[in-house]
């Protein structure tokens, strides 16, 4: 049993949790994730470890309510316990001093970008970050990203805050300005990661993305998370989660992530039938 020691609402239906897991807290590195299962009937879902604190023995995760499990997690609070948390899984981000590193976070993807930005900063990089969301209300971790970055750009799709437009437009501007970029990391919805990769590809900028396929065990045993990378099958849980963005078959990943759309809807209907309707329009 893993206790929730802190909960914060970062945006509408987006929550930060601190969970007591001292061994994982001690071991985890930027880029790694945990798999958790809420209860005896629960499914296993992967979530990036955003931060950890050795003193309190906690790890930080950030969750957006998108389906039954995340909605149930969103309903949990301080003192509640999660049945299973396993990790740290996946390979850590490869960190070195690239000179200038650009960290791009889209929506909830800013959560996994934060620990990487921190690690890059610690390694001596000049860190420029670009974070975006559909609107101001959905923007997360602006303060933390600002503290970690030498320069921060904020974008919103609707122009309600910061630059009106997409993160890739800012990235393109930086490239056009002639900024010498040694490393780009882009994490967010798959179309956004694809767009970031497409932006950097003509300039051959080393670009890493962190993939979020469906997983079951998270240790290589089942192969649910396989994705074609550079024409070869890779398991995101043991070979990733980070890959060269220019080599990822995004179309395949998008389709694979839709494998259970019907079932996900059924599960959500089941939940709202028992607990009343939820408001996700914003």
């Amino acid at each position: 049993m893993y206790e929730i020691t802190e909960k914060k609402e970062l945006a509408h239906t987006v929550y930060l949790f601190k969970i007591k897991a001292p061994l994982i807290a001690k071991k985890r590195k930027a880029g790694q994730f945990v798999v958790l299962r809420l209860n005896e009937h629960g499914e296993r879902i992967p979530l990036t470890i955003v931060d950890s604190d050795n003193g309190s023995g906690t790890i930080t995760i950030i969750v957006q309510e998108v389906g039954k499990t995340t909605a149930m997690l969103g309903d949990m609070g301080v003192g509640d316990t999660i049945l299973d948390v396993v990790g740290p899984l996946g390979k850590p981000t490869h960190i070195e001093n690239f000179g200038t590193a650009v960290c791009v976070g889209g929506g909830i993807g800013t959560a996994p970008v934060l620990p990487i930005a921190r690690a890059l900063k610690e390694a001596g990089n000049h860190v420029i970050s670009i974070i975006g969301a559909r609107n101001k209300g959905l923007l997360i971790l602006e303060k933390e990203m600002r503290e970690t970055s030498d320069r921060l750009y904020v974008t919103t799709d609707d122009g309600s805050y910061g630059h009106h437009g997409f993160v890739t437009q800012v990235l393109q501007n930086l490239i056009d300005e002639g900024l010498k970029i040694g490393f780009v990391v882009g994490i967010g919805p798959i179309p956004m990661m694809r767009a970031v990769s497409n932006t950097t590809k003509p300039y051959n900028l080393l670009t890493m993305v962190s993939l979020n396929p469906i997983m079951v065990d998270g240790t290589g045993m089942c192969g649910a998370c396989r994705v074609t990378i550079g024409g070869k099958n890779q398991f995101v849980c043991v070979d990733g989660p980070e890959f060269n963005g220019h080599e990822v078959n995004y179309e395949e990943l998008i389709l694979r992530n839709r494998s259970y759309m019907k079932e996900e809807k059924t599960a959500m209907e089941e939940l709202t039938y028992h607990e009343g309707p939820r408001c996700y329009e914003k």
Binding site: H41, E43, R44, T69, C222, G223, A224, E270
Partner: peptide, 23 residues
């Protein structure tokens, strides 16, 4: 993979979906 299929059904009890959350 057989591993995934069997894990979903045996370990995660997908045959009891939606009572079990794993489909």
């Amino acid at each position: 993979s057989a591993n995934e299929y069997l894990t979903r059904v045996n370990l995660m009890k997908a045959y009891q979906f939606p009572e079990a959350d794993t489909p």
